[in-house]
Amino acid sequence: MRHHIELEALCDDAERNHRCFYPTSNALQQATYVRLRNGYLVRPHRNVYSRASYWATLNPAERSRHIIRTLSRQFPTHVFSGLSAAAILQLEYSWHLHDDGSIFIASSTGSPKRAYRGIRRIGMTDPPVSSVIHFRRGDGIRAKAVPGPLTMNPRQTPSSQATLFGIACSDITDIIRITSPARTLVDCGLRYTFAQSLPMFDSALRNHLTTPQQVMDICDGMRTECGSIMRLLHYADPLSENGGESLCRAVVIEEGFAVPQLQHVFTDADASWTRYRVDFVWHTEDGRIIVLEFDGTAKYTDPSMTRHSNVHNVVRAERDREDALRRAGVTTIIRTNYEEVTLRTPLVRKLLDARVPMTGMNTRYERATDITGREL
């Protein structure tokens, strides 16, 4: 296979800007087809291509973002919605939601247009639109969400002197139209289960992308029963630090256990200057203090979290942490992980063995919090 300079340059530019590419001439199209047949390129969506070696390095959420960035350049006025908007906003959720490879766009109710099989339309009239500006900073690409529809002509080279929301136009790589964060949460909350949606709500509130009131305003303007959204707002908590913790809490709630307090800080009785923050805690009526810790694999493998220590040192530090928590009055420490949470039964068994209160027996444990995480 001969080296195609123009096609290689197109691939390089796409990868540098975190998107795929599409051929813009007949010659490029023919060269693309040849390389698609021999496996050098992949076609994850209609008229969207990438080097197979590069594509293999991307996780499902990032693959979706690459496709959306590419489509937004082909169709600048498209408004991406649902899970696609959540992906662009980088909300927390399970990557399994991308298994079918669908891209979601907002569409007028009753649109007669037939969609390509990889496109799913969410019907809405005059959707609230936000724009996400992707721009270059140093060696990376960053994003900024702003209200209102913006469009950048992909063939237009912006002036280096112009700025947009404090960003030099010469640094902008893409502008993508999406439904507002509040509308995005509503669409996802109506489509997915409580456990799948709660991480999105937690992360949106944590990152100050929207407020509960804005979400309720969207519900008030819809002709759809939004009871599931009200339930999500009731339990959403910005103190949840990541999607794994949010999923764990959702399972705890769905299985009927009391709503735990998040990110509680304990002081070591032998070293008052040392404090430990736990993921979940219950203070029971009989004086027990139960702690639940959600362990992600990154806790043992990510150098930024392990401070470049080996697994043995990390485990020893965890043992010291548990000893300090017991000195601080904790009576029971439960550890769980993503696999146990998704299977549910192993986690439920641990919670039952620890005699974690259940809401059916202790209704006072049903608590609501405001956006700061404080009890109402």
Rank of each mutant, 00 (worst) to 15 (best):
D237V: 03
E225H: 14
V291T: 10
L292W: 02
G227E: 12
D268N: 11
F165L: 02
D286I: 04
I167H: 09
A162W: 10
D220E: 11
C248Q: 05
D279N: 12
G166P: 12
S272D: 09
S228G: 07
S159E: 11
D202H: 10
A168M: 01
T210H: 02
D174F: 01
A195K: 09
A250C: 07
S160R: 14
A204N: 04
S272V: 12
T193Q: 09
H264N: 12
D286V: 01
G227N: 15
S160G: 15
L205A: 09
V186C: 12
V252M: 14
T179M: 05
E245I: 08
V265K: 06
F280C: 03
Q156E: 14
S240L: 08
R249P: 05
Y192G: 12
Q196W: 00
A269Q: 15
F257M: 07
F194G: 11
R288G: 03
S246K: 00
V186Y: 05
R183T: 12
P238W: 11
R206F: 04
V291I: 13
H264K: 14
Q214T: 04
M222F: 07
C219V: 08
E255K: 10
L292I: 04
T184W: 06
T274I: 09
G256P: 03
R223G: 14
Q196G: 00
L233M: 11
Q261L: 12
C219D: 04
V278A: 07
T284S: 01
E245S: 06
D270Q: 15
E285Y: 06
D171G: 01
G166R: 13
